[in-house]
Amino acid sequence: MNARAETGASKLDTLKLAVAVAILVASIWGFYFFANYSLLLRVIVLLAIAAGSMAIVLTSGPGRKLWRFASDSRMELRRVVWPSRQETMQTTLVVMVMVLVLGILLWLFDTLLMSILRLLTGHGG
């Protein structure tokens, strides 16, 4: 009996998602169909219909999971300890110096290999 209840809820969720997508597609079509009306009016209507479509999505199971995920992500983001300006500047400076040093080392290694290759093939000096 439990499996039957889950199947019914899943079909209802699928129907809700399909209706929300259909409403959204119809509103986008209407936005372009009524091109001779005011752009501001069309944007307001499109945003209102999109908000209604999102409300329908949020009443479904996947929509509630998405909302819960967004809420949890926001809560985790508030827990993050962000670096200070000084730490950010120091880290950036270290990265830039390391990139410069590594670039110079690769250039020297490339020059060495090119010299060896010229010596072996007899090209150059």
Rank of each mutant, 00 (worst) to 15 (best):
L39Q: 00
W107Y: 05
E76R: 15
I49F: 06
A3Q: 14
A9G: 04
M75E: 15
L106W: 01
W82I: 07
R118H: 05
L102E: 06
F31E: 04
M1R: 14
S53G: 15
A5R: 11
V45I: 08
W107D: 05
R64T: 05
L100R: 04
S84G: 15
L17H: 01
I49S: 04
L100C: 11
R118A: 03
R74Y: 14
R78M: 14
V21I: 08
D13A: 13
A5D: 12
L113V: 03
A9Y: 06
V99N: 07
R78V: 12
M114E: 03
L100I: 12
F33P: 01
A20D: 01
N36S: 13
L24H: 03
I23C: 05
A18D: 04
E76H: 14
L102K: 05
M98P: 04
L47Q: 11
V25C: 07
V57W: 03
Y37W: 07
N36R: 12
G52D: 05
E87F: 12
G124S: 10
I116T: 01
L77H: 14
A50M: 13
G63R: 03
A50F: 10
Q90L: 15
H123I: 08
V45M: 04
W107V: 04
T111W: 00
T7S: 11
S10N: 09
H123V: 12
R68M: 09
R68H: 13
G124C: 06
F34G: 09
R79G: 14
L102F: 07
A18H: 01
R79L: 10
L66F: 06
D13T: 11
E87T: 10
S115M: 02
R68D: 13
L66G: 07
F31H: 04
G63N: 05
L46S: 13
S10E: 13
K65I: 05
A55C: 11
I28F: 12
V94S: 13
F69W: 12
L17R: 02
A22D: 08
S38W: 00
A22T: 08
M98T: 13
L112E: 01
M96Y: 06
F34N: 13
S71W: 13
W82D: 08
P62M: 04
M96C: 08
Y32H: 12
L41E: 05
T92R: 12
Q86Y: 07
V80G: 10
V99T: 09
W82S: 08
L39H: 00
A48F: 15
K65W: 05
L46Y: 02
H123Q: 14
R118I: 01
L100H: 06
F31I: 02
V21Y: 02
R4S: 14
A70M: 14
